[in-house]
């Protein structure tokens, strides 16, 4: 029995990491991930880069078992998060996805008020207590994504009336409010303009002090700007993983160099 809840009971005391061991993922007969072995350090931003179809989003979705929702997806190997193999059958997926939150390409706010968007996760995870505590949690979440001052008087407004950047910040707040250890971000800025992108990147640099962030991006400059570690994937394989400064100045693999230099992809 995986003792997942116990191991994550005090995240501030635990150096959060994700480790995969010989991770393979098949969509039917297609091998989307090929023996991926990666160790993602805690309280840092790790970027996963690579050309389209290389498996970077597939890898990201493995970390909170989102691939379980994909028909024909079959996973082999191990994904160890804080000592537990999350691929074990006994893993509590609701709890896993609370602790390993996810932000998607397009802001996926619900057609509800800002307040109810944030309350939604608390309700699903039965973290509701009294009204004051809910309000405190919502305020804290919005403060962490620098939205509180803008939205504190508009909490009953429909979340879809916000700008795309505000919506994406709100989505991040919705994850944060559940007190995750790890936040997965799948191309979180691809729908945003350059200025909004830079502001989200700044937010990620702040959030890394409290959370382990894993970001998938096809924007190499973004990976270079925002991450501490970078993994380069190609055809389902992790070609190289290392400190971002090293990957972008002196990569160890020619394939990495050619990709980040724009010679293919």
């Amino acid at each position: 029995m995986v003792n997942f809840m116990v191991s994550l009971s005090n995240p501030m005391e635990i150096e959060t990491t994700i480790e995969t061991k010989n991770l393979n993922l098949y969509y039917g007969d297609f091998r989307a991930l090929n023996d991926v072995n990666i160790k993602i350090p805690g309280r840092n931003v790790t970027a996963i880069i690579g050309p389209s179809g290389c498996g970077k989003s597939t890898l990201l979705r493995c970390f909170n078992r989102m691939n379980d929702l994909t028909e024909n997806a079959k996973v082999q190997g191990k994904i160890i998060i804080e000592g537990n193999n999350i691929l074990e059958l006994e893993t509590d997926l609701i709890f896993l996805r609370k602790k390993v939150g996810m932000v998607f390409q397009r802001p996926n706010v619900f057609d509800l008020s800002i307040y109810n968007n944030l309350k939604f996760g608390l309700r699903i995870h039965r973290m509701l207590s009294d009204k004051d505590h809910i309000m405190q949690a919502i305020q804290s979440g919005l403060e962490q994504v620098n939205l509180w001052q803008e939205l504190k008087d508009k909490l009953r407004k429909n979340a879809r009336s916000l700008t795309l950047e505000q919506q994406q910040r709100l989505c991040i707040a919705r994850v944060i409010i559940l007190k995750p250890d790890i936040i997965l971000l799948d191309e979180p800025c691809s729908a945003l303009d350059p200025i909004a992108t830079l502001r989200i990147e700044e937010l990620l640099r702040i959030l890394r002090q409290q959370y382990t962030l894993v970001i998938v991006t096809h924007n190499m400059q973004q990976a270079a700007r925002v991450s501490d570690y970078t993994g380069f994937m190609y055809l389902g394989q992790l070609i190289e993983f290392g400190e971002t400064n090293q990957i972008f100045t002196n990569p160890g693999e020619k394939l990495t160099e050619n990709y980040i230099s724009g010679y293919f992809g």
């Binding site: 190499m220 400059q221 270079a224 972008f248 100045t249 002196n250 990569p251 990495t256 160099e257 980040i260 230099s261």
Partner: peptide, 9 residues
Amino acid sequence: QQPVASDLR
């Protein structure tokens, strides 16, 4: 051009 790696070096 935002060069990286050996191009940047």
